[in-house]
Design a protein around this nucleic acid. Structure first.
Length: 486
RNA sequence: GGCGCCGUACCCAAGUGGCUAAGGGAGCAGUCUGCAAAACUGCGAUGCGGCGGUUCGAACCCGCCCGGCGCCUCCA
């Protein structure tokens, strides 16, 4: 039974879906005006894992993740580049998919866009106006926060405590400083749609309410996003949604913590952010390996804690994964029909699955879940020393694959091969390395093997040194063959 | 000013009242190896920012202090 931290109540609660066997969740996606950074990756991954775990737990998951494709920032970016808003959004939606695919983030079952739901949005705003919860100022429509008595219950704030205008000028036309735009009259040249209040476009918060209600119903199970969305975005979603329907909006509010750089929030204003593609481009490993490194890294800290990104932590994730994949290689070796350690291994598998699901049930405690996998690695290696049958070896690999699937890890069959660094393409270093083709390396290795067999170790070592000078490392295997990597 | 979070070994990171404080990385030692590399095995905090308090018992609860951070504005 999953227990999950609900921001609304401030405590871990047993998760019970409204409809048995079915979960409906909505996660705030991205505003498509720029490339995604690691913070976006973390959020996407957290909810990808939540979705995977719910599915493992037997739920059919209806998962909506939106694209905000009409917004001030998009308009600004389009004007800067002298292109249309459509061009901007198309560009960054494509980039988003590229990034998410490399991270192994599964597509949501529904991916609504704000511009495709203008009619829903207008209808929702009309309802709020009719109920007296929203008012018109020229071509704009504002939500009046003091008409919704529950305002502040998600972010635990009182309206009076909010220092409106502390860092931004208050719009004098608003009745209360915290009132927010549901509909914005548009200026010439901006994207606009007809409405009862004249040509305009949606405010930021209303699209999520409209799309969630359209696709998941007026009340649904889980609503998620980054911590920073708690206020004002999600607070406002609740106000306008509950205000319109008189029903609860989402039942469980789930928020992930930030990615930081040197203990500080990563943000564009501080200029200390890394885009996802930047990490892949800079990585010396192939994309599949880099993607798994990132996933492992992001899973090794609890989703609600802040997490510090660095090259070192990424390298540690790589090394930790190496240990797992090395075990998988060992498991592939020829094995007897019966093993002395089969029984204890079987028990270890069972124990691990229990520990893993216990960890996941406890508010998605992925660090503990990963620890359970690592513990099984040690047990499997010891069992291997004591003797494991072919069947049991297969069962162990299957256990890792099955549990790893919930985290999107450990699915590769040829990681060792793939984890050779990708070939450099530019720079003097690469030019030197390009001296040896794969064929030449193979020839050198064969030559060295022959030298070894005739116990001409001097020559063998000389060949190894020669290859090492080109950045090629040789590993001898027990059967006398050698493998190499750059 | 309001609301909130964090401080656990060299580094990362679980644990939040009671068996020997998970797990990973690094390091060190050993096994294997012609020598290496890789791998495997072993070792590692009498203590959980500090000081008090509650309790039979606290890393975990309470208070104060020190240090760091977030939200209150667009932000994952």
């Amino acid at each position: 039974m999953l227990r999950i931290y609900n921001t609304l109540t401030g405590s871990k609660e047993s998760f019970e879906s409204m409809v048995p066997g079915k979960v409906r969740m909505y996660v705030c996606g991205v505003t498509v005006y720029d490339y995604c950074h690691i913070g976006h990756a973390r959020s996407a991954l957290v909810f990808d894992v939540l979705r995977r775990y719910l599915e493992y737990s037997g739920f059919a998951v209806e998962f909506a993740k939106n694209f905000t494709d009409v917004d001030d920032k998009i308009i600004k970016r389009a004007n800067e580049q002298g292109v249309s808003c459509d061009h901007i959004t198309a560009t960054y939606i494509k980039a988003y998919y590229d990034d998410m695919d490399r991270l192994g983030v599964r597509r949501a079952t529904l991916e609504p866009r704000a511009t495709e739901h203008i009619a829903d949005i207008v209808a929702l705003v009309e309802t709020l106006v009719a109920k007296g919860m929203a008012y018109r100022v020229n071509g704009d429509v504002y939500f009046q926060v003091d008409r919704y008595p529950g305002y502040g219950r998600l972010s635990k704030r009182k309206i009076d405590d909010l220092q409106a205008g502390a860092r931004v000028d208050v719009d004098e036309r608003k009745r209360h400083p915290m009132d927010f735009a549901l509909w914005k009259g548009s200026k010439p040249g901006e994207p606009s749609w007809d409405s009862p209040w004249g040509p305009g476009r949606p405010g930021w918060h209303i699209e999520c309410s409209a799309m969630a209600m359209r696709h998941l119903g007026e009340t649904f199970d889980i609503h998620g996003g980054g911590m920073d969305l708690i206020f004002p975005h999600h607070e406002n979603e609740i106000a306008q949604s509950c205000g319109a329907t008189g029903k609860e909006f989402a039942r469980y509010w789930v928020h992930n913590g930030f990615v930081q750089i040197n203990q500080e929030k990563m943000s564009k204003s501080l200029g200390n952010f890394f885009t996802i593609r930047e990490i892949f481009d800079k990585s010396e490993w192939p994309d599949t390996v880099t993607g798994e490194m990132l996933r492992y890294f992001l899973m090794s800290t609890h989703y609600r804690s802040p997490l510090d990104f660095s090259d070192q932590s990424l390298a540690e994730a790589k090394n930790a994964l190496n240990g797992l994949y090395d075990l998988f290689e060992r498991l592939k070796e020829p094995a007897p029909a019966h093993g002395a350690a089969d029984q204890q291994m079987r028990e270890a598998n069972t124990r691990t699955r229990q520990a893993f699901t216990d960890a996941m049930d406890d508010d998605l405690n992925t660090p503990n879940a990963v620890a359970a996998l690592q513990k099984l690695r040690g047990e499997a290696n010891k069992a291997l020393d004591a003797g494991l049958s072919a069947e049991m070896r297969h069962a162990v690999r299957h256990e890792f694959r099955s549990l790893g699937l919930m985290l999107g890890l450990l699915q590769s069959d040829d990681w060792q091969f793939k984890s050779q660094p990708k070939q450099s393409v530019v720079g003097t270093c690469a030019d030197e390395r390009a001296d040896f083709s794969d064929e030449e390396i193979a020839a050198k290795i064969a030559e060295r093997l022959a030298a070894k067999q005739s116990k001409n170790y001097k020559l063998a070592d000389q060949l190894r040194t020669e290859l090492a000078s080109q950045g090629i490392t040789i590993e001898d295997r027990p059967d006398g063959t050698s493998r190499w990597k750059r």
